[in-house]
């Protein structure tokens, strides 16, 4: 059972990562707006469920990186109903997120004498907690997140996989599934509490 649970979670998190988004253009790692990979992964270890396992969290972080690379600033949004004005997404959040990741490292060094990735999870939480608390309980859309840690959490918890893991069922929201099984209770996921 434990093996099948691990297998499922590994596969699940993998499927978060394989979403291909039209319009994505990878950002150079040298760009000042690039998200520091090591620090971002440390944020993932702090914000994402441990039950995903290291592989699962890695894939969730990689999926977030892919998503953020495809983000188009000030894109025209889907029209709100009966609003005769064009509504746009916000400016590019990535420079701010990149600066926040650098800031996490600086703060960690000042407070704990080591980078964010090198300190323990309790210390990381103490660094992130003010940002999380300031944002309030709701996750919202990742592109609107005021902090990169919130964006990463919002991206993962809004994913179809996160919903399936929560419910322990193969709901597969937003995936074209055909009509035949609509009336059935979603099948349990092996090894995941339902």
């Amino acid at each position: 059972m434990a093996e099948s649970r691990r297998t499922f979670l590994k596969q699940s998190a993998a499927s978060v990562a394989v979403v291909s988004l039209p319009g994505c253009a990878p950002m150079s790692a040298e760009s000042p707006d690039a998200l520091l990979p090591a620090t971002l992964r440390a944020v993932g270890e702090t914000m994402l469920p441990e039950e995903l396992g290291a592989d699962g969290r890695e894939r969730a972080v990689a999926a977030f990186e892919l998503w953020s690379e495809g983000l188009e600033p000030v894109a025209e949004m889907a029209h709100p109903y009966l609003v005769p004005e064009t509504v746009y997404t916000g400016p590019d959040p990535r420079p701010g997120w990149a600066a926040q990741l650098r800031g996490l490292d600086i703060e960690s060094r000042k407070r704990f004498g080591a980078s964010f990735g090198e300190i323990g999870v309790p210390e990381r939480r103490s660094v992130l907690e003010p940002h999380v608390r300031r944002a309030g309980p709701d996750l919202g859309r990742p592109g609107n997140a005021a902090h990169v840690a919130l964006a990463l959490a919002a991206h993962f918890f809004a994913s179809p996989i996160a919903t399936d893991i929560c419910y322990g069922r193969a709901i597969a929201k937003q995936q074209c599934r055909g009509l035949a099984a609509a009336g059935d209770e979603p099948a349990p996921l092996p090894g995941v509490a339902s």
Partner: peptide, 22 residues
């Protein structure tokens, strides 16, 4: 939906978010 704080205002992390959601 998943959330990052419990009703008492305590910040939730990782597995706690999932447990609260469940």
């Amino acid at each position: 939906e998943a959330r990052l704080a419990a009703d008492d205002g305590r910040v939730l992390w990782g597995d706690e978010v999932m447990a609260d959601w469940r």
